[in-house]
Simulated scan of single mutants.
Amino acid sequence: MGNSFTDAVARRTFLGFGLAAAALPAGVAGAAQGPALEVWKDASCGCCEGWVRHMQAAGFEAVVHDVADLQAVKARNGVPDALQSCHTATVGDYVVEGHVPASDVRRLLAERPRARGLASPGMPPSSPGMDIPGTPYEVVLFGGGAGTRVWAQH
């Protein structure tokens, strides 16, 4: 049997920690939520689902919209025809077009360049969601004052 003074201190300490945790804002007491990502894709596109899973595994919180008219989404978000891919996403103030790796999106959010966003034009076989290794590809930064430039090579 324990000492009543020690038991009282232990109870008080336990209650204090519980009250402190309850006072924290949601998300601080639990797991931290990642950046919010909104994705527009065709309902039947499996590679787009693969990319969404890649982003979620990297900590992004994804909201997915299955739409019939992706061209309208791309036009509304200023994605040039030459840079288009199978899905379009937004994160923060940026557009992410196609199978851009999560690491490139995290870098974009950290560095905050003056640009519209990132694109992985077409559907590169080695990109996240496509997952066929062996084909190098580029991710480009677009819509900034300096035009389109290579952001990363994979």
Rank of each mutant, 00 (worst) to 15 (best):
M1W: 07
G2W: 02
S4E: 07
T6M: 06
D7K: 08
R11N: 06
T13N: 13
F17V: 15
L19I: 06
A21F: 14
A21Y: 09
A22T: 03
A29E: 04
A31D: 06
A32Q: 09
G34C: 00
L37F: 15
E38W: 03
V39E: 04
V39T: 09
W40K: 04
K41Q: 12
D42F: 06
D42V: 06
C45S: 13
G46R: 11
G46M: 15
G46P: 14
C47Y: 14
R53F: 14
R53Q: 13
R53G: 11
H54C: 02
Q56S: 05
A57I: 08
A58T: 03
A58H: 09
A58Y: 09
G59F: 03
E61T: 13
V63M: 05
V63D: 02
V64Y: 04
H65P: 10
D66S: 15
V67R: 02
V67G: 01
A68C: 05
A68Q: 11
A72W: 02
K74S: 09
A75R: 12
A75G: 07
R76P: 01
A82M: 07
A82W: 05
L83T: 06
L83S: 03
L83Q: 02
L83A: 04
S85C: 09
C86K: 13
C86D: 11
T88Q: 06
T88M: 07
T88G: 03
A89Y: 04
T90G: 11
T90E: 13
V91F: 13
G92W: 01
D93E: 06
Y94S: 09
Y94H: 04
V95A: 12
V96I: 15
G98C: 11
P101I: 08
A102Q: 06
A102W: 03
S103V: 14
D104H: 05
D104S: 08
V105S: 01
V105P: 00
V105L: 00
E111Y: 00
P113A: 03
R114I: 04
R114N: 07
G117R: 01
L118R: 02
L118K: 00
A119Q: 00
S120R: 03
P121M: 10
P124D: 08
P124T: 12
P125D: 08
S127D: 05
S127I: 06
G129Q: 12
G129A: 10
G129E: 08
G129L: 13
D131P: 00
D131Y: 04
I132L: 13
G134A: 15
Y137D: 03
Y137L: 05
V139H: 00
V140N: 00
L141F: 08
G143Y: 11
G144K: 03
G147E: 10
G147Y: 05
G147A: 11
R149T: 15
R149A: 15
R149E: 12
